[in-house]
């Protein structure tokens, strides 16, 4: 594991309970600025819960989360609410707002991100053009194809200078070529903007192509964290071994 990094994300002894179930136990790791960390693990390992705890959408029961040296949460205390963490997140079902058009998604997010009124329209046009949605500005989410909806979710997640992007299996519902293309695009966009990415996926190919490091969770515990090469060379568990078996 790398040394504590005041410039990036530092998670220490994180514990999360959902109802009576301990979902995460004593999870500690650091992520450097601009890194693309892929999070893997069997279903129910606590991957999505980890992202939601980092986002501030659920309160941990123990441990701490720091971003660039500032404390986001400590024990039960959510010291910075989700809206003030400057995080972008794309969930599996995208959670696009059904009553807003593509342009309104961008404008609303920019308003909440603190953009001045006279800057919003131009920035929204720029963002939509950037992901190829300028021609669909008046469409609602239900009128978009799978790939277009993913791009809109990416616009919302990255609008306003997001520095930490959380991807929770966002491309699972798409066909393989599109999934890989969007994965590449998102990673490139995040890299271009200097954003740090935490990316939950079940696809080892995502780890091979995108990850600077891979974090493996099993039953709420962090079991391994390192580069793909290191994990392949010295898998800590059968799950990790099976993940990279057959790939080279």
């Amino acid at each position: 594991m790398s040394a504590p990094s005041p410039a990036g994300l530092a998670v220490r002894e994180l514990g999360v309970r959902l109802g009576s179930r301990q979902v995460l136990s004593a999870v500690s790791f650091d992520v450097n600025p601009g890194e693309h960390v892929v999070i893997m693990g069997p279903s129910g390992a606590g991957k999505s819960t980890l992202l939601r705890a980092i986002a501030g959408l659920i309160a941990p029961v123990a441990g701490s989360i720091q971003w660039e040296g500032a404390s986001w949460s400590s024990g039960h205390d959510l010291r910075v609410p989700p809206e003030r963490r400057g995080i972008g997140m794309i969930a599996q079902d995208l959670a696009l707002w059904p009553h807003l058009t593509v342009r309104e998604h961008a404008l609303t997010t920019l308003r909440w991100r603190g953009f001045a009124l006279d800057e919003r329209a131009a920035e929204a046009e720029r963002l939509l053009a950037w992901v190829g949605l300028a021609g669909l500005a008046e469409s609602r989410p239900s009128q978009l194809s799978g790939g277009e909806a993913q791009r809109l979710a990416l616009v919302r997640a990255m609008a306003g200078g997001t520095r930490l992007l959380l991807l929770d299996e966002p491309f699972t519902a798409l066909d393989l070529p599109l999934r890989r293309a969007l994965g590449r695009e998102s990673a490139a966009i995040a890299r271009e903007r200097g954003a740090t990415v935490l990316h939950v996926t079940h696809d080892p190919a995502d780890a091979e192509r995108l990850a600077s490091r891979v974090l493996v969770l099993e039953a709420g515990h962090l079991v391994q964290f390192g580069t793909v090469g290191a994990l392949r060379a010295r898998p800590a568990t059968e799950f990790t071994q099976a993940l990279f078996a057959g790939s080279s």
Binding site: E83, I87, M89, T108, W112
Partner: peptide, 27 residues
């Protein structure tokens, strides 16, 4: 209403009242 819609608004920078006014109330 999918709770994720409000979560998405919070992460986009909306305080609880703003998320209520812009996302929850229209829906």
């Amino acid at each position: 209403i999918d709770a994720g819609l409000v979560d998405a608004a919070r992460l986009a920078g909306a305080a609880r009242l703003a998320a209520f006014g812009s996302i929850l109330e229209p829906l």
